[in-house]
């Protein structure tokens, strides 16, 4: 079965997002078709079909081991770092397969930012963390780098806190600041999509609130997919929610709809806390 979102009324938002984003969001921006995924002999995803719209926040929920992170990590092909994995089916990004032979995986990953469960700043300065992806692609112009650092830190709502200590070690930041630094690092390269794998699970409530506010800001520019264990978080920051269970996509609908009037029994059991 295929879930398709209605074209959402977000025109006013996308207009605000500046001259570089003149395109209108499309509803099947990221399209997964008949996708199966295996770790060795163990199948982790079963025939997943989903269409994720651009410039919205899509939440993946479900109990541990349901495959939500696995699917997320397929979008930038991070799963290929593990030995013995294979997939069937296809993932289309803007109508084009990410498994296209012509696409270098390292280039794909530059177009898709990722934020991890545990913040992982490099043991370098704040500045060097952010310009890392520019440096590896050969950008040397100091002005460009400086500008990127400021834009990214502002984008991640970290500029005011970090502007006076850009050249100090990133390991001196607080947990919440580190995670926002990782978001800044992920958006430095102006990706199209931002993948977030339980970005708040290691943060306290105040830091979590800041990151959630940030997600609201970021969706003007980026298509965001967030994996979360926290159902309140899904209701607070996502536009639509996909529920996974045992490697299958059970239900995908507007967040409002999923949480108020779920179509499937399993979804209802999960969101009412009967298992999880």
């Amino acid at each position: 079965m295929t879930f398709t979102m209605e074209q959402p009324q977000t025109t006013s938002e996308s207009e605000k997002s500046g001259p570089t984003q003149q395109t209108s969001p499309r509803a099947d921006f990221l399209k997964v078709t008949n996708f199966n995924f295996y770790y060795g002999k163990k199948q982790a995803l079963f025939d997943v079909n989903i269409e994720i719209p651009a410039r919205q926040v899509t939440a993946f929920i479900g109990p541990s081991g349901c495959g939500k992170s696995t699917l997320l990590r397929n979008f930038n092909r991070m799963n290929e770092l593990i030995n013995g994995v294979r997939h069937e089916g296809d993932i289309l990004l803007n109508g084009r397969s990410i498994y296209d032979k012509k696409i270098e995986v390292i280039a794909l990953r530059r177009s898709i930012g990722m934020v991890f469960q545990k913040s992982n700043p490099f043991p370098k300065s704040i500045y060097e963390n952010i310009v890392y992806s520019l440096r590896i692609s050969g950008v040397r112009n100091k002005a460009t780098l400086d500008e990127t650092v400021e834009r990214s830190l502002r984008g991640a709502a970290l500029w005011e806190e970090a502007k006076d200590r850009l050249h100090e070690s990133a390991l001196g930041l607080s947990g919440g600041q580190m995670q926002r630094l990782c978001i800044a690092r992920a958006i430095a390269n102006q990706p199209e999509i931002l993948l977030m794998d339980e970005p708040c699970s290691a943060l306290d409530p105040i830091a979590t609130a800041k990151v959630e506010d940030l997600i609201h800001e970021l969706k003007r520019q980026f298509t965001i997919i967030i994996v979360t264990h926290n159902m309140q978080q899904a209701t607070r920051c996502s536009d639509q929610t996909a529920f996974f269970y045992l490697g299958k996509l059970i239900e995908f609908d507007a967040t409002q709809q999923i949480f108020s009037n779920p179509g499937e029994k399993q979804t209802e059991d999960y969101i009412t806390g009967r298992f999880g």
């Binding site: 930038n76 991070m78 390292i106 990953r109 991890f116 992982n120 992920a186």
Partner: peptide, 27 residues
């Protein structure tokens, strides 16, 4: 060197050796 750093470098589009020279060896 924690695996999360390696993941972070790969997720930003590093090749393997960019990750080794840029992140893992410095750490």
């Amino acid at each position: 060197v924690p695996g999360t750093l390696r993941e972070g470098a790969y997720a930003l589009g590093s090749t393997r050796w960019e990750a080794i020279f840029g992140v893992i060896l410095p750490a």
